[in-house]
Design a protein around this nucleic acid. Structure first.
Lengths: 221, 221
DNA sequence: ACAAAAGTGTTGCGGCTACACCCATGA
DNA sequence: TCATGGGTGTAGCCGCAACACTTTTGT
């Protein structure tokens, strides 16, 4: 108990960059901060780490409290610890990013907190260093997208390759060649074609796909 | 001051995985822990984050106190925060890895702390979750090595391509084709050939190289 | 007929791997 | 002369980008 007593203790928080996809746009879920300082200004969803939980658990808890979702993709981005980053007190923040399907979230819960989905291309000013955190989270999302199909986390269970391509175009903010994109994605052999089509985007109809169930989901890394 | 008072505070530490290279082996600098709990057992070098410093600064400070070196490569690995990871108290650890030239370090300072260089292939048991931290740090080092020439940080200022290749073989624990390795490294255009040779490893002699001075060192990321 | 998405095929470039093959020289 | 590292060249494979082209069907 007393061995470490000469060292200081710190507030430790988690902040979550919550990505979603809607209207062909990559979006972020932001909240008007509910307490001082900076009350009412837009903020990433965050919370303090409790004594009996890991940072990962804290992030999971925060996410569940605010979106109603369990079992969502969550990954550490890094630590933001400049002593003056929060003007109220010294708070060390551990940043995460999360990927959620917008249609799965609990609409009421979101409203209760006054949360709002913002397109990544037109974000409002955020408090403290949250814009910097967001930027790094986007880099991490792009990295993940390069070696894994993020449609699994961000799109409905079944989706067309057009939807998937639009998602990637939103993530990387650039266009991809339709033919090449299709070939590359399918060559990964992680999607399976379903037997029915979507006719809303084209007259010919595009087959729906879904991600194969993979027991090695944890191996991918 | 009192706004956050209902939330708990935590000890926050930094732990440094210090890589060096010696005798054709990738090594780690470990210390016998100087205080309870687990006094005397091998440990990464660490320290607590003070109130007026960022985690990055804390890691830099710890490194300077123990190796005598400033201006060394240092990168965050991640946060380790399981509540029970330290049996004495709840300590949240921010892990870093560092790359140093063994011959540059302060030999006396190292000795004073009882530190010891261990080959990565034959590490002793470490305290707490330090072996897990080390494993992740190695993955990060391998990632960095893939897109940047780590000889700059781990080898003397001038080195031969044989030395560099042996270093990479130690980092990835596998052999590389000498011809292909040379071509790939040189194609990066970040090394410059010096006008003299090393004759200790071969009769023909191998040219020394050194890293070009690059003003864009910070762009590389 | 035309537009627009779906889907397939082709070509060329660049990087990587495997390996052959020179050179230099000490033992 | 043989072994060893230094250093260069080449042929095959693969992934990728650019782009042509065909299919389908609503307007």
């Amino acid at each position: 108990m007393k061995l470490y007593n000469k060292y200081p203790k710190h507030f430790v928080a988690v902040d979550c960059v919550i990505f979603g996809y809607r209207n062909n746009e990559l979006c972020l879920l932001l909240y008007p901060r509910g307490f001082e300082p900076a009350q009412g200004r837009w903020s990433l969803m965050g919370g303090f780490v409790e004594v009996d939980e890991s940072a990962d658990s804290a992030a999971k808890r925060v996410l569940q409290q605010t979106t109603g979702l369990k079992e969502i993709f969550l990954k550490q981005v890094g630590v933001f610890s400049e002593p003056a980053r929060d003007p109220e007190a010294r708070v060390i923040s551990i940043a995460y990013y999360a990927l959620i399907r917008i249609e799965d979230q609990n609409e009421l819960l979101i409203r209760k907190h006054g949360a709002h989905w913002w397109p990544i291309t037109a974000l409002p000013r955020m408090i403290f260093d949250h814009d910097q955190i967001t930027e790094q989270a986007l880099v991490e999302l792009q990295r993940k997208s390069r070696y894994s199909i993020v449609g699994k986390e961000l799109l409905p269970e079944k989706f067309t390759l057009l939807q998937l391509r639009k998602l990637y175009e939103a993530i990387f903010q650039k266009e991809f060649d339709p033919g090449n994109f299709r070939k590359k994605i399918l060559s990964l052999d992680t999607l399976e074609r379903l037997s029915f089509k979507d006719y809303s985007e084209s007259k010919k109809g595009a087959f729906y796909y879904r991600c194969k169930e993979e027991s090695d989901e944890y191996k991918e890394r």
